[in-house]
Design a protein around this nucleic acid. Sequence first.
DNA 1: GCGGACTGCTTACCT
DNA 2: ACAGGTAAGCAGTCCGCG
Length: 883
Amino acid sequence: MPVKTLTDFLVEKSKPEKRLEKAKVEEQVKEEKKPSEVVFDEEEGVKELAPSYLVSATYDGRKRAVCLKLYNEKDRKIYLWYDNTGYKPYCLSDLPLEELKKMIALVNHPGFYGLEEVKKYDPLQYRWRTMTKVLAKDPLSIGGRPTSAIRDILPKAWEADIRFHENYILDNNLQVGMLYKVEGGRLIPVSHELSKEVLDKVMKVFEDEPEEYKRYIIRWLTLLELRVPEICRLALDIEVAGEVATRVPSPKEAKDPVVAVSLIGSDGLRKVLLLRRENVEEGSCEVDAELEYYDDEKTLLLRVFEIIEEYPFLLTFNGDDFDLPYLYHRARRLGIGAGQIPIELGRDAAFLRRGVHIDLYRFFFNRSIQVYAFGQRYRENTLNEIGKALLGIGKVELEGQIKDLPYRELARYCLRDSEIVYRLSTMNNDLVMKLIMVLARITYTPIEDLTRQGISNWIRNMMLYEHRVRGWLIPRREDLIAAKGSTTTKAIIEGKKYRGAEVITPKPGIHFNVAVLDFQSMYPSIVRSYNISYETLNCIHEECRSNKVPGTPHWICTKQKGLTSLLIGSLRDVRVRWYKPKSKDRNLPPDVREWYSVVQSSLKVILNASYGVFGAESFALYCPPVAEAITSIGRYAINKTVEKAQSLGVEVIYGDTDSLFLKSPTEEQIEELMKWVEKELGMEMDIDKVYRYAVLSSRKKNYIGVYPDGRIDVKGLTGKKRHIPDFIKEAFMEMMKILGSVKTIEDFEDAKKRIIELYKERYSKIKHGEVPPEKLAFRVMLSKPPERYVKTTPQHVKAALLLKQKGFDVKAGDIISFVKVVTSPGVKPTQLVRDTREIDADKYIEYLESTFEQVLDALDISLTTIVGSRSLWSFVPSKTKRR
DNA sequence: GCGGACTGCTTACCT
DNA sequence: ACAGGTAAGCAGTCCGCG
């Protein structure tokens, strides 16, 4: 079929000077040459290679060339390919070539290589410009060197802060995660067209869209229909026998011996390497792995390195900061040459020379992954917590110190950590590995960068790629901000840059038959439908000025389709109209559905962040008016929809950002409202959920929704917050159970009574000191080191300081567990509590009361009157209703 | 010297 | 280092009070 592939599209749109050659023949991957035909030379890299997945790009400082890592699924090896096209680092100048030639400081710069004229389209000025490429011999000469970098010599430099290997990907249109082969030393993309079947179906779904738009859809489909390879991998964890148990050993010094290394491979390898030491017993527990004992630590380490080299991918948990640097420095200390160690240490990461190291700690720490990919199922970033939350297995509890453990107990402990790391990568059919690969494809980001960087960098990479494909000049930060002006709306929260979302004041009470409608990915829809992009916002055309963004003085271009609008809009549509429905389609085989589900959640991660990055200073295309325009249109849309609902006679009882809670609407009313939204606002609404009843208070972002089957949604209420004591949480859950059983309005009378009984029972338990301290522990995150709290000293910081006094290691990110006590300063770390009589019962009663009250005040019950009038002896008079 | 009103800080949540 | 909006509790300050 003469259908355009992504590769065609890219070639047509861009004219980079040195482009990699395009495959002439359509090879089928399955019928490819045997990997035995691989020609690989350690020094020079691969010369011949059957189709393999591009997973990473780095810069090899020794060879002064970009190095690509290609993963061959068949022999499960990574091959290195070094650039041989003479690609040079560069930045751009707006000065004419002739003028730059006369700049002595530039041409005499030791790293200066040459000049070249190029045409670039400037999106801020809507015109093509002639720019001069200033080429350098090495990346450091462009920038990054402390003194006299080329970018500082030039009066104005463009694109100078893009790293060399990133530039290489951009200029050569390399697609990370896709197939490439090597022939005669040349890197050649392997064409991977969509099947006719898929293509026909897609074109049917998007038949009404313009050609330009369809090309984007095909581009995403081409990247995302191809399955990712099986990733052969090794999980590793090490144990070090330090003298002080409360301190983490320093990797830089590496003065304590590595006493155990556990290794689990996807090929079935299960090993623990143990160091023999004096006075250590064998131990007795079962260990489900092969144990290897070493008398000599050096031999042990060399064996570990040997195994690492056998695998293309290495997984660790915090290996960037601990395991790999420790292994490296320890090995050096024991006299192992750097050349024998497969590890290369970066400034804040650890890499493998040949393979790819993925530090799952960094990946799981990523907020977007936490929230959107795993639905906040884990809320602490420790291996134990993530393991427990996602797999149901935590770390082995340590009795005593590492150095005192018998061999088998040590092996079991060490093995468990690798086991969790490995299982995190295999759960849900390798979900994590697939997510990583898919995100790398969408954002054109090497695996090593993707698993370490935040989402603003992923989106940056995706957008920079789009710029290069089109031959666009990437705007300089200050030019972008100067051209687009600042924000014009006032945030409700002091110190914020612009106004955000609308929250509709809830109508307190119990509401039966509630339908929750929401705009399907509201912000991306706005970006698509309103042509939002940094260049189209406040464009240069006089005629566009009347095309105002509601609620702001900003306007939007009517002449040209915005880059962001196309990019984000097409991603949204691919998700909403293709991948999401397919992931739920029961007619498809489970493995296909599962793949679609991986893709749709990856897209969700990107889309959810695509608005926020424009308001984030760390984003390369930071442009707050863009973010402001999006939220402003969002407020306009929801407010207009509320008006419309009311005019249709539907009561709106609550709404937040993109959702509306409608009280017993008829099907016709819903349908009419949705139709109106589509026609008038150019956006789609969905029935997100239907509640048998919802309990609202006057508090925003706080409600309980009960589904027809009795399941319950709890939002924002104290009872579900992570930091509150288990005792309170359990009481709250009991209360929810009671509410879940309510079917009709009549049932409420009984429910109210049961809730009051429940409250009284829990009340007296606290009062009588019958609750163990662990159940009363608050667990609050320390967001910075204790000494950095200078303005106030919150309770968890007080507790942290007490712990520190006792010699415990407390650092940012730790969860501090404390109870409220009667003695000064009112709190005590849970570990230090000896006697239940210390506990401040009244404080806990206050907490219990306010937790219940949040629910009860919506039910129109007041605890003070009902419980206070009963026979509960010394009832502490409660505060009047809090607002 | 103490309590109430108030503001600001901090955390955890919602979309 | 994706954003802003909301709730809640506590720390700290100011002021009145013969």
